[in-house]
Design a protein around this nucleic acid. Structure first.
Lengths: 189, 189
DNA sequence: CTTGAAAGTTACACTAGTGTCAATTATTAT
DNA sequence: ATAATAATTGACACTAGTGTAACTTTCAAG
């Protein structure tokens, strides 16, 4: 029994993502967001007290989605299948690793933000556990090396996503090459 | 025949680097910089018309230094020696790759900035050429794989620097492991 | 068809950063 | 000493973003 909303939460999150990647944490403003969504700035304050609150909630949403996708991946039976599935989905949205850095910058300006940050930490732990299982599987199948720290293996996978494809190699080729290098290195045998 | 300067260009660049890494491009302000250097904000305007000018000049300085270091590396005779020297120096200052991204964000607000950006592009070309020679040497010595694009090899080296060492593995070990993974991959043979 | 609740807007006071300029300070050659 | 000059400062007007409160609009339940 009220007026129809001019913007959905999803739309708001979508624009937020764009603006965050474009302007970074400090460059992201409600003024900018309101313009993009074609609403008045004050409307946003009906839902969020400040940008920290909005952003911590957005990060929570983004990470929750990510965790769900990751859980899908872990349904694959073999390590090899999980590995390829993981790449497929990481490369479908390459911005996540960058967004994580931004998430770390959010200061706890109030109780709600502090709570969200706590929830985010919890999700990150879950993410890490899930990835740990993935790595363990690879090791138990004697595919992954035992002498490389887990955090390094995970880091390699997530960082390489961000290597700029300056030579404009077709996406599928590019992904294949990156996988290859991660698995076998840049040296000849 | 004048008053002594309260801050050197080097000090200014040093603080600029800190602030840039801490606050990002949009969060970097003259107000912040002046406070850090313990001078008045207006003093900065005697040397730079605006932050774009300062930052483009700073980037130029940083990249020029980087290029010089890289040239030193390329004096090594064998690929292997160059490879280890390159790692040593990249890991001595892990922030460069991140700074490069920031450099790209500077808008050409006036002629001087546009000129600096042109110079920066030139240095980046030189950097790339120098790295290309390095890769070529590795290939001619049959150490580097022929089937991996140059930009991917270079990207791997520079991106992996940023993998967070969450397990707090001692620096030397960490660097050794990263090198190992880049060279031979995460898979068992 | 009216009323009240949710959605949205307009307006205001406030804060932080910008760019400029006249005034002040410190140094040194004479 | 002191004049010349470069370095620095304080003060001003301006812009962009923030957070709040009073208001208007929309819509559907009674």
């Amino acid at each position: 029994m009220a007026r129809e909303r001019k913007f959905s939460r999803e739309e708001l999150y979508l624009e937020t993502k764009e603006l965050l990647l474009q302007h970074g944490y400090e460059g992201y403003t409600f003024t900018l967001l309101a313009n993009q969504l074609d609403i008045s700035r004050a409307a946003i304050y009906k839902y969020y007290d400040n940008k920290e609150e909005l952003l911590s909630e957005y990060m929570l949403y983004e990470l929750t989605n990510f965790l769900n996708e990751l859980k899908k991946v872990s349904k694959e039976k073999t390590f090899s299948n999980q590995f390829h599935a993981l790449f497929e989905f990481i490369f479908s949205d390459m911005s996540l690793y960058h967004l994580r850095d931004i998430g770390l910058q959010i200061p706890k300006v109030n109780k709600k933000v502090a709570e969200n940050k706590k929830k985010i930490s919890k999700i990150i732990v879950e993410l890490y556990t899930s990835l740990q299982h993935f790595i363990d599987l690879g090791r138990s199948e004697k595919i992954l090396r035992e002498d490389i720290p887990t955090s390094l293996i995970i880091g390699m996978i997530f960082q390489t996503v961000n290597i700029p494809n300056t030579e404009k190699i077709p996406h599928d080729d590019w992904v294949k090459k990156i996988k290859d290098v991660i698995c076998h290195g840049i040296f000849t045998e």
